[in-house]
Computed example of a mutant assay.
Amino acid sequence: MSNPIYLALDVPRLREGMDLAQKVKGHVGGIKLGLEFFCAHGAHGVHMIGQLGLPIFLDLKLHDIPNTVAGAMQAIHMLEPSIVTVHASGGRAMLEDAKAAAGEHTRVVGVTMLTSMDERDLQRTGIGGTAHDHVMRLAELAHDAGLDGIVCSGHEVKAVHNQWKDGFFVVPGLRPAGGAAGDQKRVVTPRQARDDGASVLVIGRPISRAADPAQAAREIEATL
């Protein structure tokens, strides 16, 4: 992958999203479309963004019984996403069925721990131990279930990469040096994540909310 940056394009208006993606498409490697975008614009919106010619990452974080998740995977075949997310905590059967139902050219990656959460948040959901331990357990489960990789923060990607040499690792919650963390709790710079083994760098607000999104994307690209 020549450019690992995927722009997180979660916007309420399709035309706004199209315009933003058009501005930065020469400086990103793909577009990430999450729940906000998919719920607002559906398959039509995905098709429209896809016309820009960049790979599409559908960050739907599917999490349900195995049969339902498999059905959802089959339903999005026509969208030809390059990457789709499922929650690794859905269990091995769900992960196996998700991968089996995915398109031939679609990577399925398991979300381990949201970058908006920290260890206190984990404890409140009844999960003990450190964030690192939790991510490593779910990474092992995803690997055993046959997924292509996982989503994790930049704090864990190096350790996961050391254990899963050929894995595909998506790292969100990235902020350029000196950038505001916002609602993210476990952030690193794009360069650090890339050096530690990240395959895809998901970057949203540092680009989308910049005064000049294209310039912001260029500056981040230049650090890699």
Rank of each mutant, 00 (worst) to 15 (best):
S208D: 03
R15S: 11
D196N: 06
T68H: 09
A100L: 10
V24E: 02
H105K: 15
G179L: 07
I5G: 11
S153L: 05
G90A: 06
G45S: 07
V200F: 12
I83M: 09
P172E: 01
M48N: 09
K99N: 02
G71S: 09
P213Q: 00
A181Y: 06
P55V: 09
G167I: 03
D148H: 01
A180C: 05
G29M: 07
G179W: 12
M94E: 07
L14G: 09
A8G: 11
G126N: 06
I76Q: 14
A142I: 00
D121Q: 12
G178V: 10
L141W: 06
D97A: 15
V171S: 14
M117T: 11
A75T: 13
H143S: 08
V187M: 14
H41Q: 10
G30M: 10
T130N: 07
G173S: 13
P4F: 06
A142M: 02
L35A: 10
A139F: 05
K61Y: 04
V69R: 05
G146T: 10
E156V: 15
H161R: 15
H27P: 04
V170W: 00
G126P: 00
L9I: 08
H77Q: 11
F37Q: 14
V188A: 05
G53Q: 08
D212I: 02
S199C: 03
A100Y: 08
H155V: 06
P55D: 12
G173H: 12
S82I: 05
D59P: 03
Q192E: 15
I49W: 07
K25T: 14
D196K: 00
A40L: 07
G17S: 04
I49P: 13
L201P: 03
A88H: 04
V160R: 10
V135R: 03
L224A: 06
K99V: 03
L174R: 08
V157F: 14
P206F: 05
L79N: 02
V200E: 07
I127D: 09
V84W: 15
D64S: 04
Q74L: 09
N67Y: 07
I83N: 03
A159G: 12
H27L: 14
V151A: 00
V187F: 05
Q74W: 01
N3P: 01
H105W: 13
L52W: 01
D121C: 13
V170R: 00
S116Q: 10
R186P: 00
A222V: 08
V111E: 02
D195E: 15
L147T: 07
T130Q: 10
H41V: 05
I5R: 04
H155Y: 13
F38C: 11
I127A: 11
D19L: 11
S82G: 15
A21S: 11
R186A: 01
D166W: 01
K158W: 09
